[in-house]
Design a protein around this nucleic acid. Structure first.
Lengths: 218, 218, 218, 218
DNA sequence: CATGAATGAGCATTCATTCAT
DNA sequence: GATGAATGAATGCTCATTCAT
């Protein structure tokens, strides 16, 4: 059962110095309760199998209350997804700014992703939830797509700067992302998830591939 | 409208020398009709949005008839998927038997996969069906998983034979498969899909990566 | 509780020499049950207050069954209304053909209408249903509108034949129909309803009005 | 957006010499805002389709506030209707007092009604609102019924004074009112509405009818 | 007295599934 | 074995109403 305002007065918020009326607090708590419930439900039975009632059932709220916060299952999903992307994008931005070369960019980006993935799914992993794949940054939301395009752009830029404009960067980016996705799944199965190792592994693949592709003139 | 026994007596089957009673033929034709309809519906509106009624509507059969052949939407889906896997596996087997080295195996396997993918989705591509991803070998059926394990096993075997037992073959296989999946999606967007180019590209990545990983001792 | 196939095998139909399978009979009986239930519900609580559930509750059928016959409340309503209009229109046609002059047409038409109204609402009157007005020919369906236009046309034609083209036939038809509507309501309150008297009364009004209007040049 | 106390302090009221506290003014303004909003909503989407939320949405007020003024949709509707009747009744009273004979009474009453109808629906007509019929005096509220009875009484009185007690005054009143209703609808469709012409037309019908009915002994 | 979030009953509608024909 | 109408559980969603603030 996800917490809602009914469960908790959330005094911590006040303690944190965040001042708002009870009303506003309740709203925030309820929204959070729905989001958490949705996340849990999606992780347990999958996005498609889940229905709105599954989500509110997981909550102390009434069915109608759902619609005070979201218009549809899609919308909660997007909220979760956006949330993930919103938190991930700055990480990627940091990586971008702090990388001197392709390798440090790749390692930074893969590392950020794998760590993020591990953290994001920590609870779900503990619960043995079988639908990890749907949670967090791993799905095809519009937001997600732009994130992918961002990475694609980064790769393209770096590679062109290196003067290797003959490389099929679209396929290369696809490969890089496919590696992240599939390896991410496998990493989440490991105890504990070895994000750094995975990042080094994936980076290695892309780096050496580029070198080879350059020589071959792909 | 997918053909059913009502539409056609399928004399071709008889002509092909396959002898069965009319009853048996009708059964086979109806099963096929349902499978074809399901494939079309899934491609058009997606697996999750599709309902059994959508499938039978696409058919000349009555709703009750569906249950003489499949118990659920899942089951049809598995049948389609199995079908794909059943047709793909021999190709992979052929590749396995005819490869002398890792490179030829990889190129063969990737090539087989990308070509298969292109053929499999040929009709759907023509129809502009937006849910290609769900068709054929691209989803996580149990059958699919065993296929992946098969590939994983192949890779592991070959790499161990090469004496590189220090490589994290699980991640390597994951990477190889991730590349196939993601590049497959992108390839299907190209007109025409360049399966051979994609195969060469993907093969290149894995081959050079292994060499590098060996040196690094991953 | 309106009869459905569950209640009755409707042997009468067979006795009437109408031969059909049980299935077809059930369909017909169910459709009738829904229509009857709807008519009763509309008469009792009014069209707008009524919901589909009210209708099926009045029936032995399951909720989903409603949708095998009608898509919406509107559709049942139209079916009822069309039914009334379909049965009334021939009466009007008969009147039209058998009238030698305006007076006989008006008396015939009003008489047909008032008698029809009384018969149509006989059951509802007995039940003391307060929403008679919604039943039968008294509401603004498309079908109803065309019926009114038919009457309007008749009046216009007759009046023009009489050479009184200076009369505002639109207002005259409106008046004639308003009289029918309002007097109809009042007639239904009388025990017994005096359709013939009402028809004579209404006819009188229109006839003398026309004469006066002609003189005045309206 | 209908004005509410939030929008305007309505200084005009004060200027008009009507003295009340701010509180009372706010109440009056809010009540008015709800009534205006309701009128607009009913005219736009019809009484039955409208829900309370539609009304308050049209307002700057909060949903709960509605219940400080009205208990239900029905109650607002009655308030609107009563309002119309309250404004119409004095007109009718004036007509009654100033009529010397039946004809002047009828012409006065019809004229008052048709003009009132046109004015009442002026805004709605401009807005192209499709549900004119529901606004103003045209519906069956209790208040409405008493108004009709008033008219019925007037007619009866006048006719009895004329010594024609053999006329079925109930039917005659019904006819007179039916004419008003139906012609009113048609008049509202005309551009511009010709209230005087309509009144003359309707009066003519009733006057001549009475003469004829007297002769016939109805 | 205004506010607006929470409530939960209630509705329309869909759909997998059954079963008499 | 095919049929397709009946079923009723389940779902998304709306909305009148309440009540703490």
């Amino acid at each position: 059962m996800q917490g809602s305002f009914r469960d908790t007065e959330m005094p911590e918020l006040a303690e944190l110095g965040i001042r708002r009326g009870k009303r506003a607090m309740a709203k925030a708590a309820n929204r959070r309760a729905i989001l958490d419930a949705a996340r849990a439900v999606f992780a347990r039975i999958g996005y498609d199998a889940a229905c709105i009632r599954d989500i509110i059932r997981q909550t102390n709220l009434a069915s109608g209350t759902f619609y005070n916060y979201f218009k549809s299952k899609e919308e909660v999903f997007e909220a979760i997804s956006d949330d993930s992307v919103k938190r991930f994008r700055p990480l990627l931005q940091g990586v971008r700014e702090n990388s001197k070369d392709l390798e440090s960019y790749l390692f930074g980006a893969y590392g950020a992703y794998f760590h993020f993935l591990a953290n994001e799914n920590e609870q779900a992993i503990k619960d043995g939830a079988p639908h990890l794949a749907l949670i967090g940054v791993r799905v095809d939301t519009p937001e997600m797509k732009t994130l992918f395009e961002e990475i694609h752009g980064d790769l393209q830029l770096v590679i062109m700067k290196m003067g290797h404009d003959q490389i099929d960067t679209d396929y290369l980016a696809a490969a890089a992302i496919g590696i992240a996705r599939e390896m991410g799944d496998h990493m989440l199965q490991r105890r504990p998830p070895d994000a750094d190792h995975a990042a080094r592994f994936a980076t290695q693949i892309i780096i050496t591939s580029i070198e080879a592709l350059v020589k071959e003139g792909n």
